[in-house]
Design a binder for these strands. Structure first.
Lengths: 208, 208
DNA sequence: CTCTCGATATATCGCCCCGATATATCGAGA
DNA sequence: TCTCGATATATCGGGGCGATATATCGAGAG
C-alpha cells in the first residue's frame, strides 16, 4: 500500500523522505496521513527490492542529481555558504529515484487486485490518484472492479436482516445510502472514461 | 479498539473466542471483520489487565458457569453423550466474563477521545454500537464530538485549493459531499437524542 | 551577539492489527 | 469408513502507527 504511494510520487521526480511525508500528508492527504514509522521502513523495503535507489541530493553544485528548482529541496545556498566558510555540515539528506524495476513494480501494484479487505477505500483512492499513469483500458478495469466490489457489499448489506438497537440500525442505513452514492459516483466516472475512450479511438467500435 | 469491542460484547453475556469472532464479523460486521490474529492476543491482554476472566464453559452439567440456552455455545449434548460413553474429550473451550474492572475499562474507552486518527470511522461506529450503555449526556457528547471532528475535516477540505488531475479532483469532491451527508445524518441523530432527553426529564429545561 | 524556537531531516521502538497457517475435535453425509 | 465443513484455539511474519531521539539550520527575541 505505502509502497505504491511512494512509487507513484517518485514517478514525477526524485524526492527525499521528509518531502515524501509532506506530500503524502498534504497533497495526497485526501485521506491518510502517513507516519515516519511506516515511511522509512517502506523506503528501505523498496530499496532492498531494487525499486528505488539513493541519489546524493544536497548542495546545489552536484550536477549528478539535478533537483528541480521548484523548492522541493531547499537549503542549497546555505550549504554553499557553509562550504565557503570551511565547514562540512552536509546534514544527511538522501533523495530516492525510481528505477526501471520500480516502474515495473508500480504497474503491478496498480493493476493487482488485493480483494476487498479492510483498507479497501484507501487502496482504491490511492490507485485513482495515480490513474493517469494507466492506459485507458486498465483505468476502466480499475473503476469497474471497484464498482462490482461496492455492489457486492451493498447487496450483502441489503440482505442481512436488521439486528440491533436504534443506533446500529441508523448507522447501517446511513452506510447503505453512502454506498449507493459511491456507486452513482463511480458510474459517472466510468461513463466519462468510456466517452473519452470512444473519442480518442473511435475506430475501435468499427473494427471490433 | 478491539478491546472495546470485546468488552462491549461481553457486557451481555460470557462468550468464548470463536463466538466473539463470529459476532464481531457478522452482527457488528457493519464495518470490520476482526481476525483471530488480533482477537486472541486482545483477549490475553484483557485477561492480563484483569478486565475479563475465564469461566470454564463446556459440558452443560457445570452449574458454576451457566451459559445461556440461546445456542451461543453448542455441543453440550454431544459432550454429555461422550461422557456417558466414558470418553473425556472436552475440547478446549474457554469462555470469558467481564469483571468489575472490565466494566470500568469499558466506560473509560467509550468516553475517551482518541482524537481524529486513522480509524476514526471504525472507532465511532463501534462506540455508536454500544451507545445504549451510556447515559444520555455521554451519548450526546459522543455524537457532538464526532460532529465537530467531521466539521473540522470538512472545512479543511474546503480550504485546500485543488491540486491534481481530473480523478483526484473528482475524488476530493465526492468525499466532500460524503462528509456533508455524514454531518446531516449526525444532526438527525443529535436532534433525536435531544428530544428523547427532553421527554425523559422535562424538568431539566425548567430548573436549569 | 547569543539563545531559543520551529522547520527540516532521518531513524527506531513498541504496539496493534491482519492474513495465513497449524492443530484438533466433532457431526453429517457419501 | 472416510471425507468434509463447522467448531475452536493459537502462533507467525509483516505492515502501519504514535511516540520519541537526534541533529542541523534559519529567524527572530532579548
Amino acid at each position: 500500500m505505502l509502497e505504491l504511494a511512494v512509487l507513484g510520487l517518485l514517478k514525477e521526480q526524485p524526492l527525499h523522505g521528509y518531502e515524501l511525508k509532506k506530500r503524502l500528508s498534504d497533497a495526497l492527504g485526501l485521506l491518510w496521513g502517513v507516519s515516519y514509522g511506516s515511511l522509512y521502513p517502506a523506503l528501505r523495503r523498496l530499496e532492498r527490492a531494487g525499486a528505488i535507489e539513493v541519489v546524493e541530493a544536497p548542495p546545489a553544485d552536484t550536477p549528478a542529481a539535478p533537483m528541480p528548482a521548484t523548492g522541493s529541496i531547499g537549503g542549497e545556498a546555505a550549504a554553499a555558504r557553509m562550504r565557503r566558510l570551511g565547514k562540512v555540515s552536509r546534514r544527511t539528506r538522501k533523495a530516492y529515484r525510481l528505477t526501471t524495476r520500480g516502474e515495473q513494480m508500480f504497474g503491478e501494484l496498480m493493476t493487482s487486485d488485493t480483494g476487498p479487505g479492510a483498507d479497501d477505500e484507501r487502496s482504491f483512492a490511492l490507485k485513482l490518484a495515480f490513474c493517469r499513469y494507466l492506459p485507458v483500458d486498465a483505468r476502466l478495469e480499475l473503476l469497474e472492479r471497484r464498482r462490482s466490489d461496492l455492489a457486492a457489499r451493498l447487496s450483502r448489506a441489503r440482505g442481512s436482516r436488521s439486528g440491533g438497537d436504534h443506533y446500529a440500525l441508523s448507522l447501517l442505513e446511513h452506510r447503505r445510502k453512502s454506498t449507493e452514492r459511491d456507486l452513482e459516483w463511480l458510474d459517472e466516472l466510468i461513463a466519462t472514461e468510456r466517452e473519452a475512450r470512444a473519442a480518442n479511438s473511435p475506430q475501435q467500435g468499427a473494427t471490433a
